[in-house]
Design a protein around this nucleic acid. Structure first.
Lengths: 245, 245
DNA sequence: CGCCGTCATTGATCCAGATCAACGCCGGAC
DNA sequence: GTCCGGCGTTGATCTGGATCAATGACGGCG
């Protein structure tokens, strides 16, 4: 056993090392509920991994053995019907926490869209950690509540909005949360394909493509390349997104 | 001040009295995280109320000052678009907990469908209570996680299922959670109107009605009255609900 | 009892978005 | 370079469910 020090060095057999202390995503994630002084405890149960585009992180129905925390890249969460119809329930980016579930199996699948860096935590060990850090449990409840609100918004979108309104909503959300170019929120990159957007918005690829084209021809947006969007009329789009356009 | 006793009698000015100790809904709700011995503390911060059909319990956008716990009856939660389009995000029955939100305003509205009995708790007081009963915080996280899973299922329904599949899903859920007649799960009452069902499933009243009629003419269900349903072919309906029919 | 308002059902028609079908663009393999 | 495969766009057509329009079934109330 090493002598105690103010910030113990932890040698992690899984390769996480002291990763948590220097993790860019920590301040964006539930991990910030663990104080600096105890960060090594968090690092000790974390395994840092990478996933290439298209890799499955979570398979719906598999035993829910781990939690995941995304530290870079974007993940799509989705559910399938037996004939292949897919509904993407959300995209998870930096700081996003995955795997909340009461059931002992995962309720959805998750795949890397681009190259993803993530931490994996065993559920059993996280449970132990939660007993010592009630603040983390509170943070998880916050996260779950926030996601619940987002899910309700998405239900309104899927149940009652037109294709145009869905795309406008999607673009406004992306411009708030997305990956930015040139330091401005008005221009950003879409890491996901048209097919992903369609399956997220309950539409087809063709309708997504046509609606993008229409919004461009009307001057609301610009599409420098298939993966880049510039918002030209944020106020008008916001109105459209909320059903007033 | 009264002398201490093993089970103090609490005189509640709001009329809750010792209500929690005898509450039918307690075992179905987050309140069961508070032990019997301390139930008076819970009762002290609860206000029992009744709401007539159509009454608004929660108005979207209002300051989120209270939590609610439904002890009898059914509530509809919903969101509106400015032009009146409505999406019902869920129905809350006995034991259901309402008002989880990080934001300081409610993210949805809630109305009584039939006569509803409920408890109201000030958020600030619940927060204090949570600090003393971590088990209750855990229960809330469980509740939120369960609802998140249900919300993801509903997104799949709204985004990708046909009208027929939506109705079948709805009926199977109701037959699991609903109000039963004659002690069998195969026959139950629908407390909500066709309009509510339509706004829950992202359809119109007419499509709901036509699809019910079709399912009846095909022998999958019986409709003794507009508010009663008998499941005749549960296996076939379950298959239909999961996209295999 | 009969009137009336609300809700559900049913029928006729319409249309937003799905489906079917090319075609263009770009990037990676060789 | 050019071949090839995946993705995105665009056009033509189709269709499930929406919309428009009656009509029927209750239940509450005077």
């Amino acid at each position: 056993m090493l002598a105690p020090s103010t910030r113990p060095v932890v040698l992690d057999p899984h390769g996480a090392g002291n990763a948590c202390a220097h993790c860019d995503a920590r301040s964006h994630s539930v991990c910030n509920a663990v104080p600096d002084s105890d960060i090594a405890r968090l690092a000790a149960i974390a395994t840092v991994s990478h996933a290439q585009p298209g890799t499955t992180l979570i398979q719906e129905g598999d035993p829910a053995t781990h939690f995941f925390n995304i530290s870079a890249g974007t993940v799509r969460m989705y559910k399938l019907l037996p004939d292949g119809r897919r509904q993407i329930t959300g995209f998870a980016g930096m700081g996003h926490f995955l795997g909340l579930a009461v059931s002992d199996t995962y309720a959805f699948s998750a795949e890397a869209i681009d190259t993803v860096r993530y931490c994996r935590f065993s559920r059993a060990r996280v449970r132990t950690l939660l007993d010592d850090y009630p603040a983390m449990e509170k943070r998880l409840l916050e996260v779950a509540s926030t996601e619940l609100v987002a899910a309700q918004d998405q239900m309104l979108l899927l149940g009652r909005k037109t294709a145009r309104e869905r795309l406008a909503s999607f673009l406004m959300t992306q411009s708030r949360q997305g990956v930015f170019c040139h330091g401005t929120r008005a221009q950003f990159v879409l890491p996901m394909s048209r097919g992903d957007i369609a399956d997220y918005l309950g539409l087809t690829i063709e309708t997504v493509s046509r609606t993008f084209t229409k919004l461009r021809s009307e001057g609301f947006i610009d599409i420098p390349s298939a993966t880049e969007i510039t918002i030209r009329a944020p106020v008008a789009l916001e109105g459209m997104a909320t059903g007033m356009g």
